[in-house]
Nucleic acid binder design. Structure first.
Length: 475
RNA sequence: CGGGGUAUAGCGCAGCCUGGUAGCGCGGUAGUUUUGGGUACUACAGGUCGCAGGUUCGAAUCCUGCUACCCCGACCA
């Protein structure tokens, strides 16, 4: 029997320095609603490993019921996976907003004419999915949005007084990869946060770049990842203003080399002043002071200069990429602003990408064991699993519900396993889907008024009263 | 885009070589049993054998064409 509960207060939005957050400080917009009972949920877990899945994150994403492949490189997000994706997006939004970026939303479908202006329509190649509408107009499914954001910008902004400006959006994109693989790690359709900065000159653009640099350090840290900014190829623009943010994972797709000290660098706090040119510049200098490079940019001599004990040679996954490209688009597309001197000049731009749909497998790669996923607290689809070992038993039913409500009051989401599966199966499922906490509510423990609390990441178990367990999780 | 594979029940697979109208495990349903780390047993349901053509009395099986998907490489967030 499904019990709907509409008594929970709706979170009200109000503006805080860091942007929009909900009343309880929740980052998950999906966290509202009825008591979450597994028997009423949609969690199609797989006991056996699907044949197509090669790497661990793909296997676990399929087994834990996060995603389902619909075509090569195209995936449906199942409820559990969607919750993770939404939580990742929420963290990204908060950090983008904190850094001063402003969210908008651009369409997935774009006009070919727009891309002809920048000259990229012919240059982009077969990766671009080209389509025609009923009037035979040439359209495309956007692989990125530099042209469109430049078009929007030039339509409104004429003066340097509107600068600096950084506009971002979270939108699905499509790149017709020759070989999509590894689940959503490298899919053809993918979700992307891309931000675009507009500044009067290169010096201001560098500060815009630094804002994103620091925002990215904070974002990945909040997602439970150790990210390392690595020099990336700047192509024809040149300069040092392009970095890939790499996380280390043994199954990573590319070889990376860096100084060990990066792993212990303190991440800038929430109180960082993003308007301080000096402050951000200091942080970025520190984070770019030591050797760090992907295979493509690797300089063996530079790496060898590091003391041997401090050399890290590992596999990495690219989870973010920031880029200053100057007037590459503003010039051909005539996005110009008047400076204080009254002279019009093309704006200096940068673009800054993070792939949330790629971060899901990236996090799994970085955080799992033989039994399944281990979600970091910040992006776990639910904060805790309540394993009712004997549904139908009045005591276990009651205590499970009470714990759920107590957690909800503390702003935490739990998923109650009220299925009639055997205890062993419930333990296996809970380990597989990787919620940070498991609260095991069984007749044996309740005879002493106790439940068992298990921390998924460490395997640590504690026998506690229900109230103590809630306190331990929420506190 | 080059090379190599695969396609049979929701999932994982066998059957194909040597043509005779489809089977196993898991999962599902019903029941008995069990009850703190994927319990055991019984019964039942579920498949135009990727699609199209051909050979044959007869094709999952042999032949031809097509499609989809996977792996390695090159390429990319």
């Amino acid at each position: 029997m499904r019990v709907l509960d509409f008594t929970r207060r709706e979170p009200s939005l109000h503006l805080q320095p860091g942007g929009f957050v909900t009343e309880a400080g929740e980052t998950n917009p999906a966290a509202i609603g009825a008591t979450m009972r597994l028997s009423r949920y949609f969690l199609p877990i797989l006991k056996e490993t699907p044949r197509e899945a090669e790497i661990v994150s793909h296997r676990l994403a399929l087994r834990a019921g996060l995603i389902r492949q619909e075509s090569a490189g195209i995936y449906a997000w199942l409820p559990l996976g969607l919750r993770v994706l939404n939580k990742i997006c929420a963290v990204i939004r908060e950090e983008q907003n904190r850094s001063g970026a402003v969210e908008l939303l651009m369409p997935t479908i774009q006009s070919a004419d727009l891309w002809r202006e920048s000259g990229r329509y012919d240059a982009y190649g077969k990766e671009m999915l080209r389509i025609t509408d009923r009037a035979d107009r040439e359209m495309l499914y956007g692989p990125t949005n530099e042209e469109m954001i430049t078009e929007i910008f030039r339509g409104y902004v004429r003066s340097y007084k509107a600068l600096p400006l950084n506009l971002y959006h979270l939108q699905w994109k499509f790149r017709d990869e020759v070989r999509p693989r590894f689940g959503t790690m490298r899919s053809r359709e993918f979700l992307m946060k891309d931000a675009y900065s507009f500044d009067l000159d290169k010096e201001s653009a560098r500060h815009a770049y630094n804002r994103m640099f620091v925002a990215y350090l904070r974002t990945f840290d909040r997602l439970g990842l150790k990210s390392i900014p690595m020099r990336a190829d700047t192509g024809p623009i040149g300069g040092d203003l392009s970095h890939e943010f790499i996380i280390l994972a043994s199954t990573g797709e590319s070889q990376v080399f860096c100084h060990k000290d990066y792993l212990d660098f303190p991440v800038p706090g929430a109180d960082t002043d993003f308007d301080s040119v000096e402050g951000l510049s200091t942080i970025v200098s520190k984070w770019t002071s030591l050797y760090a490079a992907t295979e493509e940019m690797h300089d063996q001599a530079g790496f060898d200069a590091i003391p041997e004990a401090s050399r890290v040679s590992a596999r990495g996954i690219e989870v973010g990429h920031i880029f200053y490209f100057g007037t590459k688009y503003s010039e051909p597309m005539k996005a110009v602003v008047a400076g204080p001197d009254g002279v019009e000049r093309p704006v200096h731009m940068g673009s800054y990408g993070i792939g949330p749909s790629r971060l899901v497998p990236a996090v799994i790669e970085a955080s799992h064991d033989e039994a399944g996923i281990i979600w970091p607290d910040a992006i776990a689809p639910f904060d805790a699993a309540i394993l009712n070992l004997k549904p139908g038993d009045s005591a276990t039913d009651r205590v499970s519900g009470e714990i759920f409500e107590a957690l909800r009051t503390r702003g935490l989401d739990a998923l109650i396993d009220d299925t009639d599966e055997r205890p062993g199966g419930k333990f296996a499922t809970a380990d597989l889907i990787g919620l940070p906490w498991q609260i095991i509510v069984g007749p044996k423990g309740l005879a002493d008024g106790k439940v068992e609390l298990k921390r998924r990441a460490t395997g640590e178990r504690m026998t506690l009263t229900p109230a103590e367990a809630v306190e331990r999780i929420a506190g």
